[in-house]
């Protein structure tokens, strides 16, 4: 069981000119592994992640999530599929203002009726590893960028997804916290989850099992 992308082509129109964001990319995110995609900004990494998650439709190519062609089904079914299987940690701030950090974290599980939120020991363990236990009763407006990123990571991890997609998860984090986050991702992979990380941080990519680089829309496997 894995996510398999074959011959993905995605084209954008920018100022009247045609621009190829993803040029015939093929790769796999297997369960139990960490896959990293590196490259400079603007190389098309985020677009690739969006396509793999079924949020953008490519001009050509297919994406199979656990043997289901996600672009061969209706949009509503595709959304449901993604929602149940893939947890996403976006690059930018994605916490809901007006809700406490604790509420923000457990918000994820209200969309996963089969996997209710359990504030058990593994939850508190993860929260303390990420160093956010003191922040639970605070509001996003009071948090720093790095703290908000760690909360978003906690939120996705509580969802117990089959696949985790993380776009620059260590973006605002220092070395220590970055290492902790990668350790958590490793734990997920060991538990049989597939982890896809988009990053330009060498530290992150080096701890991955499979590494691709992306340059001008073209994907190349490095490891």
């Amino acid at each position: 069981m894995s996510i398999v992308a074959e011959n993905i082509v995605k084209e954008y129109k920018r100022r009247g000119k045609s621009f190829i964001a993803v040029d015939n990319a093929s790769f796999t995110v297997p369960k139990g592994r960490i896959v990293a995609v590196t490259g400079r900004s603007g190389s098309g990494k985020s677009t690739l992640l969006n396509i793999l998650a079924g949020m953008i439709e490519p001009e050509k190519g297919s994406v199979n999530v656990d043997d289901i062609n996600i672009f061969g089904v209706k949009a509503s079914k595709r959304d449901k599929l993604r929602a149940g299987k893939i947890g996403i940690i976006p690059q930018n701030q994605s916490l809901i203002s007006g809700l406490t950090i604790y509420d923000n974290i457990r918000l994820q599980s209200i969309f996963l009726s089969q996997r209710p939120f359990l504030p058990n020991s593994s939850f508190s363990g993860m929260v303390s590893v990420l160093g956010i236990d003191d922040l639970l009763s605070m509001y996003p407006a009071n948090l720093s960028g790095g703290e908000m990123k760690r909360v978003a990571i906690a939120r996705t991890l509580t969802g117990n997804f089959d696949y985790i997609f993380a776009d620059e998860p260590t973006g605002e984090l220092d070395k220590l916290n970055s290492e902790k986050v990668m350790a958590l991702f490793r734990k997920e992979a060991s538990a049989g989850k597939g982890v896809l990380v988009i990053t330009h941080d060498d530290l992150v990519s080096q701890s991955a099992d499979i590494i691709y680089t992306m340059e001008d829309g073209r994907l190349k496997r490095k490891k």
């Binding site: 605070m138 509001y139 009071n142 948090l143 720093s144 703290e147």
Partner: peptide, 10 residues
Amino acid sequence: SGKRIGLKVA
């Protein structure tokens, strides 16, 4: 009560 102890980060 919402004020944190220490530096308030931007």
